[in-house]
Amino acid sequence: MDFGSINPILLLASLMVAATPLLLAAIGELVVERAGVLNLGVEGMMITGAICGFAIAVNTGSPIVGLVAAAAGGAALSLLFAVLTQFALANQVASGLSLTLFGLGLSALLGQGYQGIKPPPFPRVDIPLLSDIPVLGPILFRHDIVVYFGLALVAAVWWVLKNTRAGLILRAVGENHDAAHALGYKVVRIRILAIMFGGACAGLGGAYISLIRVPQWTEGMTAGIGWIALALVVFASWKPWRVMLGAYLFGGITVLQLNLQAAGVAIPVEYLAMSPYLITILVLVIMSADKSRAPAALGRSFHASQ
């Protein structure tokens, strides 16, 4: 065992990277759930985004185009969920599960022939001056642009939900869709937009894993991160800033257990690899005491006739 091999600065820097896919997927799902829709298909949308982004980036040579394609792929898949739940009024839990099962299969199908290929490298942005600060520089200011985009997205979602009319309407739809409908808001249209936003974010998060974090394509590579993102939204009590906190917490656990594996701690690798999932359960248990924060219409179908 060699704890000396763990460099705390590198650890914190890689924490930011490990947290980004979670952050992206969770902030998207937060918007979906604030609109009153429970989409359990995050895992499926992430993995679809991962392969869409990877394939397009490899074929065009541009990782940025890949990221855009990933967002589009995730949004397209989420549209299937939107049709099922908003028009066919299907059960949201079952529809979300079917999205995940379908997405896992679809990504495996699309990903044939992309195994073992290296994607085009993603440029790292060294913010001038700030990145030269000792300790803080390498941790905070020497990342790729998606890390900062994720943070900006959290801030934007927080601001829109809290301070704008659009945010107010979205929350109204999520709290009481009948009242929102009576006031003349298009409940179904707003929910579809929210679902697509969630899909795009999840796709982006998936592509971040396949293009930047790993970077290569393997089947089922998201390994439950989509599900952890769902748990994060509960952990965050549906508040954007707490999603960020949670994402860094889980990113930290992931990175720490990987570092402990590398350092050769006396705990078997498999038990270390379990830890993010076990801690997710623990956090869910602690947070489930407070149910009051959930959007009141979460998971309920809306039909104007009722």
Binding site: L84, L97, S98, F102, L104, G105, L106, L109, Q112
Partner: peptide, 17 residues
Amino acid sequence: AAAIQVFQGMLLFFLLA
């Protein structure tokens, strides 16, 4: 093999729809 997985996933989709 993945095509069969997609096929099974589609089944649930169509059923729900």
